[in-house]
Design a protein around this nucleic acid. Structure first.
Length: 569
RNA sequence: GCCCUCGUAGCUCAGUGGAUAGAGCACCGGUUUCCUAAACCGGGUGUCGCAGGUUCGAAUCCUGCCGAGGGCGCCA
């Protein structure tokens, strides 16, 4: 009986309806599939066909068409009935087969991406600066996308393209030579380096920075040794924060890795004849696209980040033959990425269309854009530490006997931050407000984790009572049906999240799932017979199967957002 | 000046061209012998920035305008 679902349940039910429409109307299958929708109010039905578009072809009023179609409808194994409501034809799905399929491992990974690779460039902070709160965006979005593509069976490569090369680092070397020698970097080295950098931007001479970067690029021993020291200090600091957040990478290849390959990249561009010299610099002109030139080499002979980004994308394609190469970088760099992609296009590279800039909104603090350059930052580790501290206090208050208090505090504190960053569409700007980030009620990460813990708790108490031979036809409450329908949408939502590179699709879905479950769960407070752990063993078994599905999907969904799902909290 | 993005309830945000535009927060009230109250239920809010256009139908698509943010040749 469940063979027909073929992994996508809603689709099979839809197919029956499509077949029916094709038989009864002049619509092509694709058109029919396209206009089927979900009724706004579930009590009307499970799927609906608006009949407006049919009016012309059938030369009749939509209301009459709906009635005629309702009369012509023959129930199928999956679609139980069709009822006309005004110009709409509302279909009701057969409950038991649907429930059976919906509860059969609803969180299971798919094979959509078998044999294909997604490269994700996220994080990518600059060394000698702290990770600030605004870095959370690229980290949370990038890491979540990696897990979303993993869920669909793609091979993913998460790359930390460290900002460890360029004039910026020449400035730091210059600053160090002027004011830094003798400073002890063993303690809080990043702070001290960043102070030097900020001071240089105020008092230093740009030329000194450029000069030191040139020395670095030419392999000057002193410059190289200092740079390596600064880099090590920064990496140690980054690792600590990444580990607090639970964010990982597969590859850490900074810009410095491409320093030598940059010359090769320039030669490849030269081979296409696209480059020219403009005002002493070597560039690719993009005037016809109304864009400024793309720089390969500055007038002083040094390469720029764009040169190294070219080298990196060549390297990535050679290594991974990616299907998509995604740069998770704020929208302030949109123009730059357009230029970079335009150069790839002009070079005639077959994968030019597979690179994309997944942008996100700006983070503000105190109404102003945050940025290490301006010094308007809140340290990321400080925010994480505070969030965990707050959760710790809540646990002491509500559940002081909890087994792994520290572990749960970290999971929930970090989860709150990740979720607050991933719940709105990434295009939205973020205003950092302490009290907003430290909110744990309502549409928050802890709410989802709490709902998950409730499910886990029920299943734990049920113990051995959880069987797979439950009679799902006993799930007759409207709330149970709603819940099953939401569960069945999970994989579809994951696909959309991947297609749009938009983790908030998962966030919004999980909120809906948690709310639908909570409403159901609370019925038991009014009426003990409606509890999951009901007196009737058969009803209990069926409900446990449902709750098991909710638990699995919540756990998996949280995982896709980079969050943990504690069993108790 | 030019280009990009955004504009939905007091605030933060949902809303595959379709039925009465929905949540959370905040405010008021209610629910706990129970599977954990980080929860649930009830109470009221909207010129969907403005003006046109396309469509049987527009918060959604197109154009213009207004407002906010970001970007615009040698930083990353």
């Amino acid at each position: 009986m469940r063979v027909r679902f073929n992994g996508n349940l809603m689709e099979s039910s839809r197919q029956d309806i499509v077949d029916f429409i094709v038989k009864e109307t002049p619509l092509e299958p694709a058109e029919a599939a396209d206009i089927i929708e979900t009724p706004p109010d579930s009590s009307r039905g499970d799927l609906a066909l608006p009949c407006f578009k049919l009016a012309k072809a059938l030369r009749n009023k939509p209301v009459v068409i709906a009635e005629d179609l309702a009369a012509a409808f023959q129930p199928t194994e999956l679609v139980e009935s069709a009822l006309a409501t005004g110009p709409y034809l509302n279909f009701r799905l057969a409950r038991t087969p649907f429930l059976k399929a919906a509860l059969e491992d609803p969180a299971a990974p798919t094979h959509d991406g078998d044999g294909r690779t997604i490269v994700l460039d996220y994080g990518s902070p600059n060394i000698s600066k702290h990770l600030a709160y605004h870095h959370l965006r690229t980290l949370s979005i990038g890491f979540s996308l990696k897990r979303i593509f993993d869920q669909l069976g793609y091979r993913t490569v998460g790359i930390n393209h460290l900002g460890d090369w360029g004039t910026t680092h020449g400035k730091l070397l210059a600053a160090w030579k002027m004011w830094g020698e003798g400073i002890d970097l063993t303690e809080d080295g990043v702070t001290k380096l960043n102070e030097l950098y900020v001071r240089f931007n105020q008092e230093g001479a740009k030329e000194d920075g450029q000069d030191w970067f040139r020395r670095l690029e030419q392999g000057d021993a002193e410059a190289r040794a200092l740079w390596e020291q600064f880099r090590e200090i920064s990496l140690a600091e980054f690792d600590e924060v990444f580990s607090m957040l639970g964010v990982t990478f597969d590859v850490m290849k900074g810009e410095s890795h491409y320093a030598d390959l940059a010359e090769d990249a320039i030669r490849r561009v030269e081979a296409t004849g696209l480059d020219e010299i403009s005002e002493g610099a070597q560039v690719v002109m993009l005037t016809d696209l109304d864009m400024p030139p793309f720089f390969l080499r500055k007038a002083d002979g040094a390469t720029v980040y764009g040169t190294r980004d070219l080298a990196a994308v060549f390297d990535r394609y050679e290594l991974y033959e990616f299907d998509r190469c995604i740069y998770v970088v704020d929208m302030g760099q949109s123009l730059y990425f357009k230029q970079l992609f335009a150069v790839l296009e002009r070079m005639g590279l077959p994968y030019a269309g597979r690179v994309e800039h997944v942008s996100f909104g700006i983070v503000r603090f105190g109404g102003k854009k945050t940025g290490s350059r301006t010094g308007n930052v809140v340290l990321l580790r400080e925010v994480v530490t505070e969030a965990i501290e707050r959760i710790r206090a809540i646990i002491e208050d509500k559940n002081p006997d909890l087994a792994d208090k520290e572990g749960v505090a970290r999971a929930v504190g970090v989860g709150a931050l990740l979720f607050s960053d991933l719940s709105a569409k990434r295009v939205k700007d973020v205003e950092f407000v302490w009290e907003d980030v430290l909110t744990f009620e309502g549409h928050t990460g802890p709410y989802l984790q709490y709902t998950h813990a409730r499910c886990a708790s029920i299943l734990r108490k049920a113990g051995e009572d959880v069987g797979d031979d439950a009679d799902l036809s006993l799930l007759t409450l409207p709330e149970e049906w709603e819940l099953a329908k939401v569960l069945a949408r999970f994989t579809d939502r994951v696909r959309i999240a991947a297609r749009d590179a938009e983790p908030s699709v998962i966030s919004q879905y999980l909120l809906l799932l948690a709310e639908t479950f909570s409403r159901y769960y609370n019925l038991g407070n009014e009426n003990p017979e409606l509890k999951v752990l009901a007196p009737d063993p058969a009803a209990r078994a069926a409900r446990l199967a449902l709750v098991g599905g909710v638990r699995d999907v919540l756990a998996r969904g949280l995982f896709l957002l980079g969050m943990k799902a504690p069993e108790e909290m």
